[in-house]
């Protein structure tokens, strides 16, 4: 009795341990890279058969081999894009979201080979190449996304220095309140500079500013310039110091925004390009059979 309890205990432990292991396993190395292996095998088959299969007059989408690859590629694209629906519905086990994501990544990479071999390297300015180009854009943005997810979160947390985003905003607000008080003795021109600095919303930053982290029209930096060191009184000195702190705080927030932007920008390409790809794919397939 005792031993069976012990057995069941250890079995439970093993099960729990196994679950814990899978919980911490990256989707990239899921099941010892099962989908990487599947994908590499698929690519090898396609590449070898591309060179072994002798089709006339040359490889392109219009040979039996081309149609086969095209069918596989189109089905893959549809399935890969279904991750958008699947991810909203997490589930464990064989068809876990992690397995699905792993397959999504590796089969998506295999699509480069399948799609390109399908074209037979016949590219041009037409809807067919548009579909191919969108496919490549989606895959490449996905590759970027994975690399961003692998590297940027560390930079993001280094920059945050244990502050939450709310605290960053709050810190800026705290400095702003002090600036408001400290700027009371200032004359009109200087007060206007401070007002301009306070009035500039840190989050009102454009796409490029966020991506590059450069803000040439930063009102805080400008306001700082109207308090040149050396020729200023105490009140001005205080405002200048506060502006310096505001700028430092802005810097942190902007770096945070930059990392976030670098982290998120791929999705703004990946997702709309996927939908555009599905449209282009439909146009590609329908047009081929329409002008059969």
């Amino acid at each position: 009795m005792a031993s069976s309890a012990k057995n069941s205990g250890s079995a439970n432990f093993e099960r729990a341990e196994k679950r814990r292991d899978t919980d911490h396993e990256s989707f990239l190395s899921h099941k010892r890279m099962r989908w990487l292996k599947v994908s590499v095998a698929l690519c090898l088959i396609v590449i070898v058969s591309y060179f072994l299969v002798d089709v006339e007059p040359r490889h392109n989408g219009g040979t039996w081999y081309g149609y086969t690859l095209g069918t596989i590629g189109a089905l893959l694209i549809v399935w890969l894009s279904l991750l958008g629906i699947r991810k909203r519905n997490m589930s464990p086990g064989r068809w876990s979201l992690k397995a699905w994501t792993s397959a999504h990544v590796y089969l998506g990479l295999a699509l480069i080979v399948i799609g390109t071999m399908h074209t037979g390297f016949q590219l041009g300015w037409n809807v067919h190449t548009l579909a191919w180009a969108l496919m490549m854009l989606v895959v490449i943005s996905g590759i970027y996304g994975i690399s961003a997810y692998a590297t940027l979160p560390r930079s993001l947390s280094n920059n945050a220095r244990e502050m939450t985003r709310g605290q960053m905003v709050e810190a800026l607000a705290a400095i702003d309140r002090q600036l408001e008080t400290a700027a009371q003795p200032l004359d009109r021109g200087e007060a206007d500079a401070v007002i301009a600095a306070l009035g500039q919303d840190v989050f009102k930053a454009g796409f490029l500013a966020r991506l590059t982290g450069t803000y040439p029209r930063c009102a805080t930096a400008r306001a700082q310039n109207s308090f040149p060191a050396g020729s200023i009184n105490k009140a001005e000195e205080k405002v200048s110091a506060l502006l310096g702190r505001r700028k430092a705080q802005l810097g942190q927030i902007r770096r945070h925004m930059r990392y976030r932007a670098l982290l998120e920008v791929w999705l703004f390409i990946h997702v709309p390009a996927t939908i555009a790809l599905i449209a282009a794919l439909a146009a590609h397939i329908i047009s081929v059979f329409y002008y059969w």
Binding site: G166, F207, I253, F268, P272, A273, T274, A276
Partner: peptide
Amino acid sequence: DVKGFALGSALPSKRVMAWIGLGVI
């Protein structure tokens, strides 16, 4: 307070871009 950190606050939504691309193509 913090949603401004996301890139989405500086770009049209993915859904809008997707619909436009779909429609144009």
